[in-house]
């Protein structure tokens, strides 16, 4: 019992991160010895990215087909050979090399993945080579095109039980990412890669920058009520500046520290001052080696 309790509460909490997200955080120690704490992409994000890429591929193919017909009608039958060759090659290369070509770029991501802020990386931190990219994308034959052709072509010929067996067989590969903790699809498994979040983040304003303007004074006892987790929630509230939430949180904190609303004090100003005091207090304690996780952490 007691060991289970200590395991459930790690000594170093992940600062300022939503609790649900920590199970998707993976260690990547750089050669300089810093853990980059990569975050894996959610299956839903990857599915969206794939749908975007799929739409692009189908869009280009449809455009190509239209263009091919237009050329045939305007130039005449003499162009049919060249048009057919170009069409076949383009569809072949789109199907097989669209993903590979984009993942070979420094961003390591297709347009769909870029839109979702994702990228492909090797699981051991090595450079992402052509071999790994080829392996992970060639497996799409098994994961995507085989199930598709089964659904549309072979399924009808196979009959009831055969079709069912085929569907189960395909489902194993399609839903493979849901059954392992690193969310690997078969291609990732074979190539030693995974898909991580790599969003571009802007550096936001430091909420501690506006401190000198504040007239609200928070005492140390008042600041000692909360811990790091509450501070990060407060930071989110202040950055979002939603009036209803600001008011609700201000009322909540005033109630907790038993403090009446002063004359002419706005909720926003109070929260900013409280954030600053709490952060100053917690950071000072952190320098002395204690990081207070949350309000229940009494040590």
């Amino acid at each position: 019992m007691s060991t289970a309790d200590t395991q459930a509460r790690p000594a170093v909490a992940h600062v300022g991160r939503e609790p649900y997200a920590t199970e998707r955080v993976r260690e990547l120690i750089t050669p300089e010895g810093i853990d980059l704490q990569l975050r894996l992409a959610e299956v839903s994000e990857r599915a969206t990215a794939f749908l975007i890429d799929g739409a692009i591929i189908i869009g280009v193919l449809a455009g190509m087909t239209l263009l091919a017909f237009l050329t045939m009608f305007s130039v005449g039958r003499s162009s049919i050979e060249l048009t057919a060759i170009i069409w076949m090659l383009v569809s072949f290369f789109l199907r097989n090399f669209y993903f590979m070509a984009f993942e070979l770029t420094p961003k390591g991501a297709t347009p769909g993945k870029r839109a979702m802020g994702l990228r492909v990386a090797t699981r051991n931190g090595e450079p992402l080579g052509f071999d790994a990219i080829f392996a992970r994308n060639a497996m799409r034959e098994l994961e995507l095109f085989l199930p598709l052709s089964f659904l549309f072509i072979y399924g009808r010929e196979a009959g009831g039980w055969g079709a069912l067996a085929g569907l189960v067989w395909c489902a194993i590969f399609v839903f493979f990412p849901l059954f392992n903790r690193d969310r690997l699809r078969v291609g990732d498994f074979v190539a030693g890669t995974w898909v991580i979040r790599s969003p571009k983040r802007a550096l936001e304003l430091d909420l501690a920058a506006g401190e000198r303007a504040s007239s609200v004074v928070i005492t140390q006892a008042e600041a000692d009520v909360y811990g790091v987790r509450e501070l990060s929630v407060l930071e989110d509230v202040l950055r979002r500046k939603d009036p209803a939430t600001v008011q609700a949180v201000a009322v909540r904190i005033r109630g907790k520290i038993k403090r009446a609303k002063a004359q002419g004090e706005t909720d926003q100003a109070f929260l900013e001052a409280y954030y600053l005091a709490l952060r100053a207090r917690l950071e000072a304690r952190m320098l002395f080696g204690h990081k207070r996780r949350d309000k229940h952490d009494k040590a």
């Binding site: 600062v15 300022g16 750089t30 810093i34 980059l36 990228r119 790599s198 983040r201 550096l203 950071e283």
Partner: peptide, 19 residues
């Protein structure tokens, strides 16, 4: 620092630079 947006920014910057 307990500024979570700063840490998130630096993590994202370092990850991009690492790759």
């Amino acid at each position: 620092s307990l500024d979570q947006s700063l840490i998130a920014y630096l993590e994202s910057l370092c990850t991009r630079a690492y790759f």
